[in-house]
Design a protein around this nucleic acid. Sequence first.
DNA 1: AGCACGATGCTCT
DNA 2: GAGCATCGTGCTT
Length: 193
Amino acid sequence: MSYIPLKILPPSFYAQPTLVVAREILGARLVRILDGARLCGMITEAEAYIGEEDLACHAKAGRTKRNAVMYGQPGHAYVYFTYGMHWMLNVVTEKDGFPAAVLIRGIEVLEGGEIISARRHGGDTKGPAKVTQALGIDSALNGVNLCDPKGGLWIEEGEPVPPEELVTGPRVGLNTVPEPWKSKPWRFQMVRR
DNA sequence: AGCACGATGCTCT
DNA sequence: GAGCATCGTGCTT
């Protein structure tokens, strides 16, 4: 059995300004094919990291081996390792050559709940490292094209999020980042009302 | 319910 | 060698 995505988000979606992508990716469906099973969750929280000027962005000190994918084509996955044990999933935005991305910080499970629950040892999927653990995302997916289902990871169109369910705030975990970057309201979250 | 802390290893200086 | 876009546990209110 194969899984044909219905409305996969195209490169033109990711090529938009990063703040637009971070806001509009909420409600979209993150899909992962893992060991032949389709896992899917609605994206509920995301953060924007925008260019070398943004001192919270990994590109702040220029291009390195680690952040190279962020400088590439929009619509690809930037996956990196941190804190000695956690993987983070980002989607590359803006035009080729400009380093920017959106960090996927939380999902609400829609499909494959039993598999995901087992992978999470019964825990939730609210948190960037929880998302990657739930969906089996690691360095093998760094640089994967999210617009091509062959990669086993893509994002499908979802229901639009009404403004009253959208909340913004400062990005999380930027303990040593200087202002104004530390306090930029570049975190976007869906909340049930 | 909230906070403090330790785990754990890769990347860049 | 320092720092890290975090998480789970265990302890305190």
